[in-house]
Design a protein around this nucleic acid. Sequence first.
DNA 1: CTGAAAGCGCTTACAG
DNA 2: CTGAAAGCGCTTACAG
Lengths: 346, 346
Amino acid sequence: MTTIKDVAQKVGVTAATVSNVIRSKGPIAEKTRKRVLQAIEELGYRPNLMARGLQQGKSLTLALLLPNIANPFYPEIALEVENVARGQGYQLLLCNTHDDLIVGRHYLERFAGGWVDGVLAMSGGIDLEDLESLASRGVPVVRCLFDEELERRKLESNLPSVDVNWEQAAQLVAQHLVELGHRNFAAILQGNEAGNLHTARLRGFQNALKPIKASLKPNQIVFGDSSLESGYRLVQQILQPPNRPTAILCSNDLMALGAIEAALDAGLDVPGDLSVVGIDDIVIGAHVRPALTTAAIPKREFAIAATELLLRQVQHNLPEIEHIRIEPQLIVRRSSAQSQPSKNAS
Amino acid sequence: MTTIKDVAQKVGVTAATVSNVIRSKGPIAEKTRKRVLQAIEELGYRPNLMARGLQQGKSLTLALLLPNIANPFYPEIALEVENVARGQGYQLLLCNTHDDLIVGRHYLERFAGGWVDGVLAMSGGIDLEDLESLASRGVPVVRCLFDEELERRKLESNLPSVDVNWEQAAQLVAQHLVELGHRNFAAILQGNEAGNLHTARLRGFQNALKPIKASLKPNQIVFGDSSLESGYRLVQQILQPPNRPTAILCSNDLMALGAIEAALDAGLDVPGDLSVVGIDDIVIGAHVRPALTTAAIPKREFAIAATELLLRQVQHNLPEIEHIRIEPQLIVRRSSAQSQPSKNAS
DNA sequence: CTGAAAGCGCTTACAG
DNA sequence: CTGAAAGCGCTTACAG
């Protein structure tokens, strides 16, 4: 490996001078500058980034913690986060927690060792206490998408955050169905015994039903994980007549796609016999048949807000306790239609 | 920040001893070990990873360069790469090149500064010379998926590689269509003036047509980027009767999904009027209607092979010039069917 | 404008 | 079993 000393020696100056040339700092004679640059070129010298990082106390690296990059909700976000980060000279560590607290802790422990300048923590597999402990060590942190399972603790937490108004998202799609005349609903929700439940969305669904004096009863709600397969299985449980629902509210688009597939496989027409709506607006939802009606989360906006909030902390060292909330938007496509009660008598 | 010296001082030993305790190296009196651990606990000390990395010449970090994590082909791969890496104590840098050589070079330049222990370079936006120059600096590199655009140079390159037998993949789906009786084909291929062309796949398509004394003529091949939208647009150009093809060969699944959508929008039945096949086996392909016939690339296998090859180089410092080739597998679903020439007379 | 010195926070032989 | 010393490759005041 060739070091800054090798360059200095070759030119006949000291390492400090070479360092100044590289960083364009301090006064440098044009002549020596040229000679240094040429020596760097000839030797193929590249400054050792860990040495620099150690000295400056910066790594120019951010970490992105998320449940699983293979879930189609995340790649767009990761792409945009990396984009913003790169634009400011930062690189991005991709950390899949698999919704596993042990994995999340593994990473957060590492980052306590000063390996990253900031952490973007997107729900799932992250203990809020671990996160706060990291922040208290002076590592800037932005907490994202935690609202569902940790409502109360969030309020106590003083970490800056970027969240989505999931309640409103759920309310938008449910209202849409109500307006189409639906009265007989079922909901398939992410949730399990560990309490990893989409409570805000459930609340949003219920809100929309109040004006028609209705509500989701416990037997109209089924729980599972967030996968497409889960949506498929859960809907199979629901579709048994009699009293089949005319509309299904889904925790997210992936589950909704599974729901549609299950309905079609059961010989039902979507939306003729059954309307299905999701939340997220994943890309493929616009391209399946029938195209999915959903509440869109502006993912680019979300990613940019989160990354910029983090970078502001990193760069100015201000612990901005800002709480940003991203608002969803209803997108009506083909998977929802007017209720046709006659058909459901069969 | 609390350093190793703070711990040492608190216990009344020297930094070397604390270091030995942390790394479980050398002989340590059980008693001092306990006291050191307790002090670490009390102070909340975490070793500075950049200092350690500088000293040891290791970062325990790998870089994954790929065109765009939002392309559904990559998230599964990235997930698995990170998995294998984490299993061996490494973390993963996510680098989207956007098929832009400038961006690729930006990252590779950085990595020349010793920030990562190894680089997994997946085609698109990476200049092979940049990559070889990095490797010649002693940074282990594995080159993946480069075969298409750089056939000849690949052969000259002495970088270890993991590739997919794209030619065989293309041949499998094309043969399948031939066996279904199709004789009138069109192909939509990734490719542009810059030569970023899927030549191996085109060759595979042609191979399959030889036995029936046929071949794709220039007017039966259209080029575009690898997106779904591109597939949609390209197929619109093709579907003009007369002499509409009965089957469309697509460079990848995403384009195939766009092709199917365009066909359906044009009022055609898939596969009744038109068979469509892809290559990749992206997850969603199994869940759309009609489900997509494709040549599956074993993505997990691919990711594991590539990461392990890289880690072997990193850990043993052997420049293994191994060339691994992953074989595809035909998956027949619903988007392909028997040719019905009568229908196409219309 | 350039150099000498100290220091970032660790690890690594080596001496005792 | 523990300590003193040097060093990883940079940057940062400060002197001259």
